[in-house]
Nucleic acid binder design. Structure first.
Lengths: 337, 337
DNA sequence: AGTTCGCTTGAAAGCGGTTTCTCAGCCTGT
DNA sequence: ACAGGCTGAGAAACCGCTTTCAAGCGAACT
């Protein structure tokens, strides 16, 4: 900042101290309220600050204090409506604790994540890993770096790291119960990104389906976007499923778009159920039957976990928030074939 | 960082220099490639870095270099799908230039923005103001701070600041042409947040309507959410409009939800047109007739503008990207009353 | 062979704050 | 009236890294 071509020189604490005729230490004390200062000096400092338009340099403060006043969040895809809502909540918590929020996106490329997290660790007091796709080994390596970190939508067995996720089993149980009650016997699951831990968990949770006499075939679609859902419809139709459960709402909506093109009635010929409840919001929701995830609460809790972690070295058991099945218009009685 | 209770001491450049038996200056030179260094020393440094797991402290680098390596973005609402897409593009550009992205959200509270921007200026090389709602006077004050800044979705006449927005007039002309061609004579406009510059511009652009013999009544709904649209339906119905143009898609969808509840057919009894084209994506789009805004390009261009600004003190004319009317299912012939 | 030149490297001076340390000055107790 | 204890302000050290500056060294040139 010593060298800002064409720009006015930055105002530093010593400018203020000169103007206020006090030492830099006093300016710092006044601004941070860390010690008692003569009211007269306080006024002089405030006047000088106002007059000069002084703003402390965040980098210098960070360096001196040993804290950046920043938390970092890694997300796979900002375009996936799931994450902005989480970010919103995290940001609010961070702000409430006087911290800023840095955001990085891997664009669903697991290979990029490692580097991004390393970068976040260089400039953030704590890091929130939202739905990290990276291989377990890399993740464990990063977690071992002894840097405050919270795992979101992923749980690593044995890792002593605060983690938060949702109760996939509970959600699946509701879905399977719903489908079974409608009379379905065979369902297909449209899997999401191969590296997604949440995807594995959903598949695992299908164990619940058995109890309801529901048979589930897993159809890989390889992505979390509606395009992926759209493309995977053929494979779904090839199975004899009467209901499809999608990795998330985007995939479900993509599938529905394709089904409509093909003239396959939803839910008359095929029930479709999504995941996440990514409606635009409460009022303008879609008519998709889906499993709702409390994203704001998830984000808030995650933010608070991280904040606690930054204060004391608190570590806790993984937290699983409950999901709720939202029965709407895309699930119905099985087609008679 | 000198004092990290319970955590292992941070590894600094001097640890590396000691381990590699070179000076800190040399470590810095090797890591940044700023000067030629004996290959043997280079190897020793790299070995030491790897062995110790050294990562340069971003705050210290920022301080020494006079650059934070960070850009800041202020958005009104992360939950509004408009912004994440912009952020995604901005983030990609920033990353391509080796910069990180800091995000702050005002939650649609204009009174908060000033403070947030000041904070961003303390820790970012450049700041992108996305759809700032703050009063013009405050904005001008901030712009006068001589800090690299780009204005997004707002243009301040006379301010020498790179700005980017969309061609509201062009978009409105298309909408009005479309409605006029269908035979509409009276339309209502559901206004958005009172502090939104874009809202004013949309209203202003209605001048275009006149040329098509279309009369437009402005109905305030006061928000940018679907709830706002939902609540404003009564006022719309009270007018004798045969078509409604909403501030954005969320408002439009909220209105449609309410209209459906009231049994008012869309578009048979009332045409509804949105703004932004906030469909979940290309495949799973809604059936809303809307004016599409190229958000990714907008974000990309904005990011590039900021990047240019950071290199040289380049300032340019406001850039207006074109909008495209997407005619879908919610607009049709006017009802015969 | 003696200088000068050019390169690489280490020492040291910042960058802009915070915090410890030190020292006046004042108040209190005897 | 004087020693001791407090209090509040300034000087200086430090945070971790970059960059200027100076020095050392070998090569090249006269």
């Amino acid at each position: 900042m010593q060298n800002r071509p064409g720009r006015s020189p930055r105002i530093t604490i010593s400018d203020v101290s000169t103007a206020a005729k006090v030492s830099a230490a006093t300016v710092s004390r006044v601004l941070n309220g860390t010690a008692k200062v003569d009211p007269q000096l306080v006024d002089r400092v405030h006047d000088a600050v106002r007059e000069l338009g002084y703003r402390p340099n965040a980098a210098a403060q960070g360096l001196a204090r040993g804290e950046w006043g920043t938390i970092g969040v890694l997300v796979p895809d900002l375009a996936n409506p799931y994450f902005p809502e989480v970010l919103k909540a995290v940001s609010a918590v961070a702000r409430a604790h006087g911290r800023r929020m840095m955001v990085m996106e891997s664009d669903e490329d697991p290979a990029l994540e490692y580097e991004l997290v390393e970068d976040l660790m260089r400039c953030c007091d704590g890091v929130l890993l939202a739905s990290p796709r990276m291989p377990r080994a890399e993740l464990v390596d990063l977690l071992g770096r002894d840097h405050p970190m919270v795992l979101f939508n992923r749980v690593v067995a044995g890792a002593r790291v605060p983690s938060i996720s949702v109760d996939f089993t509970g959600g699946m149980t509701q879905v399977c119960g719903h489908l079974a009650q409608l009379g379905h016997r065979r369902a297909a699951y449209l899997g999401g990104p191969p590296a997604s831990w949440g995807n594995d968990e959903r598949v695992r949770a299908f164990e619940a389906a058995r109890a309801f006499g529901l048979e589930v075939t897993v159809v890989e679609c390889g992505g979390s976007t509606s395009q992926a859902g759209y493309d995977a419809v053929a494979a779904v139709l090839a199975s004899d499923a009467t209901a499809v459960l999608a990795y998330n709402d985007l995939v479900a909506l993509g599938a529905i778009a394709r089904l409509r093109e093909l003239g396959v009635g939803v839910p008359d010929e095929l029930s479709v159920i999504g995941f996440d409840d990514i409606s635009l919001d409460r009022v303008a929701h879609s008519d998709l039957t889906t499993v709702s995830v409390p994203r704001d609460e998830l984000g808030r809790r995650a933010g608070e976990m991280l904040e606690r972690l930054l204060v004391n070295d608190y570590s806790e058991e993984p937290l699983y928030l409950p999901m709720t099945l939202q029965v709407r218009d895309t699930s119905g009685l099985p087609a008679v074939r």
